[in-house]
């Protein structure tokens, strides 16, 4: 555990030195300032007197704001974390690490958790910040908004798993980053595949392929919507969304660890 923690802190330090941590922090603070000004501009009255109902409107406001900011936050986090594994695998660096009494699995876990920790620190400030601003400005302290932290963390954990696997496989931050972005952008398309199928009448093979991708790939879009569904009581969460996404995370990370364990450096 001590070695994993050492590597996690080392990763945190690496991100601070590369200025990405600071850039990410500035982004979060700017977003929070934006939310604060929006909430101070008489928006509260509009929300309270909305025919939908003030509670529901307030939840929609918080969820909508947070999710928009989070989408940018995910892009930024991928950019921030894509180089962690490739930088560890550089010639002259990996030799030093592997000569120490630390296992390869601990090295990689430390790097992985480092990325997750960086994301969590920012997302915690962002979501807690929005919740506090809404509480102070509108007197709305509903806790149902806070699970967004967990769903976002799960969302990023999956993307970070992709960065880990392709970081080990290609040693290229660029390729890892592109694949993580691709996964992010494909997910909403696959989630709304029913609409897509309207244009694919008679093309059953293609539909099956798209269905296959949907079931194999993580359900990032659905994960991001879970807190909203729960908060607004809009229906039930299908367990397969969480299970298949978790399975994907497990497969990519285990594969990443396996390849790292077998590789000569």
């Amino acid at each position: 555990m001590k070695n994993i923690w050492l590597m996690t802190v080392f990763t945190l330090r690496e991100s601070i030195s590369k200025k990405v941590f600071i850039a990410f922090s500035i982004f979060v603070l700017i977003m929070l300032a934006g939310v604060y000004f929006a909430a101070s501009s008489g928006l509260g009255e509009t929300l309270k007197h909305n025919p939908i109902g003030s509670d529901k409107m307030m939840i929609l406001f918080k969820m909508g704001t947070a999710n928009s900011v989070l989408s940018l936050g995910f892009l930024l986090s991928i950019f921030a974390c894509a180089s962690f594994i490739p930088s560890l695998l550089e010639k002259g660096t990996i030799d030093l690490f592997l000569s120490k009494p630390i296992s390869r699995a601990q090295l990689l876990l430390g790097k992985y958790f480092g990325g997750v920790l960086i994301f969590f620190l920012h997302i915690f400030v962002l979501i807690a910040g929005i919740w506090i601003i809404a509480g102070i400005k509108f007197g709305h302290w509903d806790l149902s908004f806070l699970p967004l932290m967990l769903s976002s963390l799960f969302y990023f954990a999956i993307l970070n798993g992709v960065l880990l696997l392709f970081g080990v496989l290609t040693k290229s931050p660029g390729i890892s980053m592109m694949l993580a972005y691709l996964l992010m952008f494909v997910s909403p398309l696959l989630a709304g595949r029913d609409k897509l199928f309207l244009f694919l009448q008679g093309k059953e093979t293609l539909k099956s392929i798209i269905d296959g991708f949907y079931f194999v790939l993580p359900k990032l879009h659905e994960i991001q919507n879970i807190p909203k569904i729960l908060a607004l009581n809009e229906g039930t969460i299908e367990p397969q969304i969480l299970l298949s996404s978790f399975l994907f995370l497990l497969v990519v990370t285990v594969l990443g660890f396996y390849l790292f364990e077998k590789e000569d450096y």
């Binding site: 080392f10 330090r13 690496e14 030195s17 010639k91 030799d95």
Partner: peptide, 9 residues
């Protein structure tokens, strides 16, 4: 190691 690289920061 030969040509070792320490974190330069």
């Amino acid at each position: 190691p030969e040509n070792h690289k320490f974190p330069n920061y």
